[in-house]
Design a binder for these strands. Structure first.
Length: 592
RNA sequence: GCGCCGUUAGCUCAGCUGGAUAGAGUAUCUGACUACGAAUCAGAAGGUCGCAGGUUCGAAUCCUGCACGGCGCACCA
């Protein structure tokens, strides 16, 4: 029996590694598993299999650093009461320098307390790893593409796009930190009828500027920006397009306006720190291959046809997506010979996989969630089942003074994301969006966000960082508000690498270390769940940990050794804060 | 009619693969600056986790039904 048990033990621990669990959790888990195994071998625990200890962080810190409910979960199969099982397992837990105490509590929890020495070690890790602090390897260098924003280039970015931008970029950053090789991509829907409508809209405004009476069609875009683009063209080229053939004029205006909108998108996104590796034009999918070969769209359909998922009906060409769980089959080529948007999207996703991505993540607004099933079906039909993840971000409801602002491109009233950025700033906007989980709607009142900006949690976190920098300036004899020397240089001057960290055992100091120790797990969870909001929460917890420490522990004092140790701790916290903020794409100011 | 998301403190929201007395911010009340930044800290108060069943040692979490709000259900993009 012992051998089987050990084989199982190996299975369990290797499974933990495959999941990419963190080093500390692995170690604790292995410790408990060893104890369970020993208890079984000793005949004190009648179990057929070694259960997964599933160690977790207790919600209540007074319960220790790690806990396992394995005794309760094994009660039935062992035929013993949980507390008894816990006693048996605890009695087989071997001595370990990192474990300060083992306690049995409640209905049968086994709680483990880390020793101060184990906690102090994280300061070294944070300090030495610096910007790489919290890195985990769950990606194993695999390539993932994150596609987001992907706004139609027919108008300015709206506030919802701002949310996708913040989300996608933060996810990309977290995935990079978790060992994935990430590319950011923006899919430009520059083909199709909405582009023609766009061109016609600008053209119509241009004709008005030329003095003509134009009856405005219902489907045309009516935003003020259309008139602005038309005016720019009018001012540069006067009336020379007035007598042109309508089709030529609209096409020309469409392209002119397209370039402008694309530049607007790039400028706004870059302004908030979001830069894409690839801007992918939908048109390239429709273009014939060099030498007149089939287009990517035709290729995509051919690939599905070869796989046996294409059929013809009522003059149209269909994809049998119901084979992969979709509600109904979908048209790819309409009876009039035009391709549907979906056909192009299939070609696009085929292109993604042809580029060798191991995984593809799309961030879509909730208004597109009905599209998910067919897209996944298409990927599966192309032989890439399970490689596509679609993150659905719920919509942003914009308010101004409590009144809803519509976000349609076609209505005149619209607050662009650029305006929002101007009013609340990139840091606050990003943080505000990232703080909520993706499947939660956001009610964003501009005036409220402005008024509350002093109480905005992002400032709370940034203040912690600035405060640390201030302490370091103090230690270096600089003016507290000076910006002459940057924090990294101060650290070289002020932080002694050989400081005796064992001096740090006050409750507030240990609490801060515990926070730092959680970071790796948070990164792992945020990457696994594609949930940047876990990082904002952690950032606030870490900031709280520092502020509490600050209130209770004087850093710069007459005690040279204690000062050295606390400066070391504070500098480690500074680097960790900078690291979290970097993952969120938010700046870490050294003074505010 | 069908599908997806939401419903947790007055307000805005967390709550990891089911775990211990359901948390944080904010608002309200009470304290703390002759020391490194008070954009901070400490304390109090605040809850039938939308409703009703079910699953089990144990449910905010899983299952079923219902209610309310949002978004979708094209040979549109």
């Amino acid at each position: 029996m012992g051998r089987d048990v050990h084989a199982l033990y190996l299975l369990v621990t290797s499974a933990c590694r495959a999941r990419g669990s963190t080093a500390v959790r692995d170690a604790i888990s292995a410790l408990v598993t060893t104890a369970i195994t020993a208890a079984i071998d000793a005949g004190e625990l009648p179990l057929e299999q070694v259960p997964d200890p599933a160690v977790e962080r207790p919600r209540d810190p007074s319960h220790g650093d790690w806990a396992t409910s394995v005794a309760m979960r094994s009660a039935k199969s062992a035929g013993m009461n949980p507390r008894q099982i816990a006693e048996v397992i605890a009695s087989h837990l071997s001595e370990d320098a990192d474990i300060a105490a083992v306690e049995i509590a409640g209905p049968g929890f086994i709680n483990l307390r880390l020793s101060p020495m184990a906690l102090q070690r994280v300061l070294k890790e944070a300090s030495e790893a610096d910007r790489a602090f919290g890195r985990v390897d769950i990606g194993h260098g695999r390539r993932v593409q994150v596609e987001f924003v992907s706004a139609n280039p027919v108008g300015p970015m709206h506030v919802g796009h701002g949310r996708w931008a913040a989300l996608g970029d933060a996810m990309a950053r977290v995935l990079e930190h978790a060992g994935w090789k990430v590319e950011r991509e923006f899919y430009v829907n520059d083909a199709g009828v909405q582009m023609d409508i766009f061109g016609a809209s600008v053209s119509a405004r241009y004709l008005e500027l030329c003095g003509a009476e134009v009856e405005f069609a219902d489907e045309w875009y009516q935003g003020a920006y259309i008139t602005e683009i038309a005016r720019e063209i009018f001012e540069a080229e006067s009336t020379c397009w007035f007598d042109a053939a309508p089709h030529e004029r609209e096409q020309y205006f469409r392209e002119k306006a397209y370039v402008q909108v694309l530049e607007h998108l790039k400028r706004v996104l870059h302004g908030m720190g979001v830069d894409f590796d690839v801007w992918f034009s939908e048109r390239t999918l429709h273009a014939s291959a060099p030498g007149g070969g089939p287009s990517a769209v035709e290729d995509g359909i051919a690939a599905l046809r070869d796989a046996g998922y294409i059929f013809e009906l009522d003059g149209a060409t269909w994809f049998r997506s119901t084979d992969f769980g979709d509600d109904k089959d979908r048209v790819l080529v309409k009876a009039d010979g035009e391709y549907t948007y979906f056909a192009a999207d299939i070609a696009y996703h085929k292109n993604k996989f042809d580029r060798g991505f191991d995984r593809v993540i799309n961030i879509w607004g909730a208004d597109h969630h009905g599209y998910v099933a067919r897209m996944k079906a298409a990927c599966a039909a192309l032989g890439h089942e399970g490689k596509l993840d679609v993150v659905i971000g719920q919509l942003v409801n914009l308010f101004r003074n409590g009144e809803a602002v519509r976000m349609s491109k076609r209505t005149g009233e619209m607050v662009t994301f650029e305006e929002l950025l101007d009013e609340v700033g990139a840091d606050a906007a990003r943080y505000w969006f990232l703080r909520r989980s993706t499947d939660q709607q956001v009610d964003f009142d501009i005036e409220l966000a402005r008024q509350q900006s002093a109480d905005n949690p992002v400032f709370y976190v940034q203040y912690a960082h600035a405060r640390i920098c201030s302490i370091m300036r103090k230690a270096a004899g600089e003016a507290v508000s000076s910006t002459a020397v940057d924090a990294d240089s101060l650290a070289v001057e002020v932080v002694r690498p050989t400081a005796d960290l064992s001096l740090l055992d006050a409750p507030a100091e240990l609490a801060l270390m515990r926070r730092l120790g959680e970071f790796t797990e948070v990164v792992e969870a945020a990457a696994r769940d594609l949930a940047p909001n876990k990082l904002t929460r952690y950032a606030e917890d870490l900031a709280t940990g520092f502020h509490q420490f600050y209130t209770r522990c004087r850093v710069v004092s007459d005690d040279v050794e204690l000062t050295a140790a606390r400066l070391y701790a504070v500098d480690a916290a500074r680097r960790a804060l900078r690291c979290v903020l970097a993952l969120l794409g938010v700046s870490a100011p050294e003074s505010m």
